[in-house]
Write a protein that binds this DNA or RNA. Structure first.
Lengths: 209, 209
DNA sequence: TAGATTGTTAATCGATTAACAATC
DNA sequence: TAGATTGTTAATCGATTAACAATC
């Protein structure tokens, strides 16, 4: 299996394939093909074949692939077949929204605890996830071997909380703030950048005027 | 000015430039250069020059650019210098979080009304934005000439609400649901795909194991 | 002047698509 | 068999980077 040299463009396509595969499975099919995915998703069939080849999946000429095999190949390649303990920091509206998602079933990412500094939030729970004081973060993260930190704090404290996460053994940070984070080279940061999407949206609007 | 043939990769870089320019301005500088942005953002200087050229901006050799000129050029190119009326549908946690953002000052996108079907939300307000029943959407959108629809409903009703938005004259939809939307060719859809980001994050984690 | 910068043209790199042999 | 599919190699396309002349 490849290490880390796959393009992000490829990685970002996999969830779309998974989504489509689930729909096809729900419609009662057992097998499907790169051609069929290509029609459904408007992605070139050769590109789908190449993306699938990266996961190690092999198909059968004329038949295609068993849908469950395709799903498993992609899930395994992305690491979505394994449980990953995640902690969320910052239980504002956005944090609460993220706590409401059920990522676990699809991605293996389980948010097991949330943290905030606001006294009146500590002790509450959202979607069965308890909210703790931020001062408990480090000890809990180390004990539970949390891998992923979800950062939904105000931007002003983003770097401070990031440092705490890094010190506590967090290996990847899903950053919902606008603040560009500094981390050691062995820690992964994935930024959710809403403004990038808005730039695309408004520019397309302008181009039509 | 170019029409719509600029790559999305380029468009997605502009907000990062803006963010950096604001920081430089705050630090008291009046002028800066592509070289300086390149150092701060780890983007190749030639790429920054090309991106800036697209906006029509011209600099002065040896000096660089006046920061306010750069900002204005990018804002104008993205259409972030103009007010755009936006309506949000679906005031759950995610919708509430989006209502809490102040996009207006940075992007010109002003969320002027929110809509939901839940009786006990109608009449409330979040961040000074009133929540109305979904049945008022069409009339209000037409009257106020809403351009942008923000879709934060459950996936199951995403297409239904999208149809309502399109019928009501909405020209661009910012889609926070997982549902792939069908729209006429003159309506723009920008998907916020959290799962794509998670695929990148977990794959990078795996590659390090 | 020399150094730093701009803006453009050429080269490189990487991603996508085309072409095609192999096969059930 | 013929048609549909796989998987790979070659070609194309587009984005990024290098090179360099112009300039304040």
């Amino acid at each position: 299996m490849k290490t880390g040299d796959v393009s992000e463009l490829t990685l970002r396509r996999y969830p779309r394939y998974l989504h489509c595969l689930r729909k096809l499975k729900q419609s009662g099919l057992e097998y499907t093909s790169a051609n069929e995915l290509s029609r459904q998703l408007a992605v070139h069939e050769t590109q789908i074949r190449k993306d699938l080849a990266i996961t190690g999946l092999q198909g059968t000429p004329k038949i295609g692939h068993r849908i469950t095999d395709m799903e498993r190949a992609i899930l395994t390649y992305l690491g979505w077949n394994k449980l990953r303990i995640s902690f969320l920091v910052g239980v504002g509206n956005l944090g609460s929204a993220i706590l409401g998602y059920d990522f676990y079933k699809e991605t293996g990412i389980q948010i097991v605890a949330a943290f905030d500094t606001s006294e009146h939030k500590i002790g509450l729970a959202i979607n069965d996830i308890s909210i703790f004081g931020l001062d408990s973060f480090s000890k809990m993260a180390k004990r539970m071997k949390a891998q992923i930190g979800i950062l939904t704090t105000p931007s002003e404290v983003a770097q401070k909380v990031t440092n705490l996460m890094v010190e506590s053994g967090i290996k990847a940070i899903w950053n919902f703030t606008q603040h560009p984070l500094s981390v050691p080279s062995d820690v992964i940061v994935e930024d959710v950048n809403l403004y990038a999407g808005l730039a695309v949206l408004t520019r397309k609007l302008i181009a039509k005027e």
